[in-house]
């Protein structure tokens, strides 16, 4: 098989990414299996958190950043696994790979699809946190930390989902492989969300925001370059 230019042809890359993204959106709109599944899972976990922590703390608000991000990560993992499983179940990825598509476009479209779906999840999650736990999340720095966290999750989650897509026990393998790599991200987002909720000054939170930006840039680059290695035949 001829080697395709990897991320060389920029207009073509953008166009292909856009087409693949539209395809993913269409599939999701028709099947409605990935995002609704994540959302329902997320609500269930919030209910469980509410009861399990209620017994030992009088003030669940203190745990809100942790609850928010644990629910987010696990629901997000569920959706992430689905995005590639769907492709293998219908063998559509093989079809895409037969067409002259730049693997970089596959990465970008999958990453953006993941980013959009976890952003929807996150908006809903934030709303539910306010409803269930009565916390005030309407802070400017929360609005900075949340998208950065989602972007980092999508950036590094996508190649890992692609890695596990054809394997046995993929549902279990994906979190086992991904969670150690996500740990710095989780620490940074939980910390910055907590600090943002405490209304701290920019200079106190800037360390974590810069860390998040660095993490996102680093893993976007590595994933972008590494994705070709993962999907190559």
């Amino acid at each position: 098989m001829k080697k395709r230019a990897f991320g060389k042809d920029l207009p073509g890359l953008i166009q292909q990414t856009w087409l693949l993204l539209k395809k993913d959106a269409l599939v999701e709109l028709r099947s409605k299996e990935s995002i609704p599944l994540m959302i329902v899972f997320c609500i269930v976990s919030l209910v469980i958190f509410n009861f399990t922590f209620d017994l030992r703390t009088s003030n669940v608000t203190l745990l809100a950043p942790g609850i928010l991000w644990v629910s987010f990560i696990f629901s997000g993992l569920l959706g992430l696994g689905r995005s590639f499983t769907r492709e293998t179940e219908r063998e559509t990825l093989a079809g895409i790979r037969l067409a002259p598509v730049d693997p970089a476009a596959i990465y970008l479209s999958k990453m953006l699809a993941c980013f959009f779906s976890v952003t929807i999840l996150q908006l809903l999650l934030t709303f539910l946190m306010v409803v269930f736990f009565d916390v005030n999340l309407a802070k400017p720095f929360v609005a900075v930390a949340l998208p950065l966290g989602s972007l980092g999750f999508a950036a590094i989650g996508t190649p890992f989902a692609a890695m596990t897509m054809n394997t046995r026990a993929r549902e279990a393998l994906l979190p086992v492989l991904l969670l150690p790599v996500l740990l710095p991200l989780v620490l940074a987002v939980v910390s910055s969300t907590a600090l943002a909720m405490d209304n701290v000054e920019w200079n106190e939170i800037s360390l974590w925001i810069h860390f998040l930006i660095g993490y996102d840039v680093l893993f976007l680059t590595i994933s972008f370059l590494g994705f070709q290695i993962i999907v190559e035949e």
């Binding site: 190649p159 890695m163 790599v181 590595i222 590494g226 290695i229 993962i230």
Partner: peptide
């Protein structure tokens, strides 16, 4: 695993 070996170490 080469990809994982690189990402895991950078992490």
């Amino acid at each position: 695993s080469a990809f994982l070996g690189i990402v895991g170490f950078i992490n």
